[in-house]
Every structure is written in structure tokens, then in C-alpha cells.
Design a protein around this nucleic acid. Structure first.
Length: 197
DNA sequence: TGCAAACCATAAC
DNA sequence: GTTATGGTTTGCA
């Protein structure tokens, strides 16, 4: 297992991989916290490579991570290594990965699509080792409020603001198991602004 | 609004 | 096995 980190703009990105498959990611303004977060997700330490001489594959992955971070979404597909995670968690993460940029859904809706309960989905999000590739920030509570976020609620909020694409209608995303209802992120943003008044 | 009770997969004992 | 723990939800005052 190999860990790479790199600073883009003013935030650090990092990820752990093996055979060009990504097992854990992290991001934030504090370099050491990013590294620690990855090690916590993995459950063990891996050798670290700083941003001086990165292989092509790593550069591409960082570009994709930054694209997601700035709200652009990603077109290049990153290969994920989920086999270490419990089966149910994998199902949840795969479903969440299908939520398009500019939309959000609720813990309950995800639970309906993959089986299980809303709280279990929340747990899977809380332990998501692959943020923001698996866009757990696009999962909110049933009232279209923010819900929670390991990286801090303001981080989640800013993510969603950057991802607003001006969509007007809810829609359904086809999933292996069923359908996932998603709502334009504007639905919840306007609701939050109202609350602040 | 606010509170209490049901819900469900995991991790930790 | 059992218990404790959440990024929840729903129903009912």
C-alpha cells in the first residue's frame, strides 16, 4: 500500500492505493491531519510519498480529486478498492457514488434503494474512507437540512454551494438494486438561507 | 417545534 | 453473544 499527498491551491489532498486502485482518500488544510486520516481509514500505516515526483497515475488521481473539490465533478473514473469494507457498506458507497453533481438525496432514500435503515446509511457515511470521491456530502437528512459531516458542516455546506448547477426538478437515478430519488441541491440551499434570516 | 421511541449495520467488549 | 453507538426518521404532544 502506498500513500501520496499533494497540495493544490491551499488544501492538501491525499490517497492510499495499491495496484492503481484507491483504498482511501482524505483532504483538508492541515497536512498531517490528512495523512493521519488516511491511516485511520486504512487501519495501518503505509509508506508515504510527497508531491515531488509523482507517477502519472497519481497526478491524474489528484487532478480528479481537485475537480470534485471545486464542484466540477469528475469524468475520469477512478478505480476503487472496497474489498476491505463490509458488504453492506460497499453497497451504500456504490449507490452514493451515483448521485450526480448538483443533486442531493437523503439517508432514508439511500436506505430505501439499497436496503437497510437510514441510520445504517449514516454510519456508512461517517466511516466513508473515500471522501470526496464517494460524495457523502450529497447525502442530507429527510427535511433537506444538512445532516452531519465528519469534516465539519461548513465544509459540507461549501461543497454543496460549489456544486449548484441550477437544476430545477428532482429525478430518479437508476441503481443496480432499484431507484434513488435525488433533488436539486438548490432545494436545500434555499431552505437553509431561509433559516438564517 | 420539540421530544421519545423505533431502526439497523458495525465495532467493541 | 451482547451492548453501545451513531452524519436518521417518524409520530405525537
Amino acid at each position: 500500500m502506498q500513500v501520496y499527498i499533494k497540495k493544490i491551491g491551499n488544501i492538501w489532498f491525499g490517497f492510499a492505493c495499491e495496484n492503481q486502485k484507491v483504498a482511501a482518500t482524505n483532504f483538508g488544510s492541515d497536512e498531517t491531519k490528512v495523512i493521519e486520516g488516511i491511516e485511520t481509514s486504512l487501519g495501518f500505516n503505509a509508506s508515504l510519498t510527497m508531491d515531488s515526483k509523482l507517477p502519472e497515475f497519481a497526478e491524474q488521481t489528484f487532478t480528479a480529486l481537485n475537480d470534485i473539490y471545486i464542484g466540477k465533478g469528475t469524468t475520469s473514473s477512478i478505480h476503487l478498492d472496497l474489498h476491505r469494507l463490509p458488504a453492506y457498506t460497499q453497497r451504500v458507497l456504490k449507490a452514493v457514488a451515483r448521485i450526480p453533481v448538483g443533486y442531493v438525496t437523503s439517508y432514508g432514500a439511500v436506505a430505501e434503494a439499497v436496503g437497510g435503515g437510514a441510520r445504517a446509511v449514516g454510519n456508512a457515511m461517517a466511516n466513508n474512507p473515500l471522501a470526496p470521491i464517494v460524495p457523502c456530502h450529497r447525502v442530507v437528512n429527510a427535511a433537506l437540512g444538512l445532516g452531519g459531516y465528519s469534516g465539519g458542516l461548513n465544509v459540507k455546506y461549501n461543497f454543496l454551494k460549489r456544486e449548484a448547477k441550477g437544476f430545477a426538478e428532482p429525478k430518479n437515478v437508476p441503481l443496480d438494486g432499484g431507484m434513488l430519488k435525488v433533488f436539486p441541491v438548490e432545494f436545500m440551499l434555499s431552505k437553509l438561507e431561509k433559516k438564517q434570516l
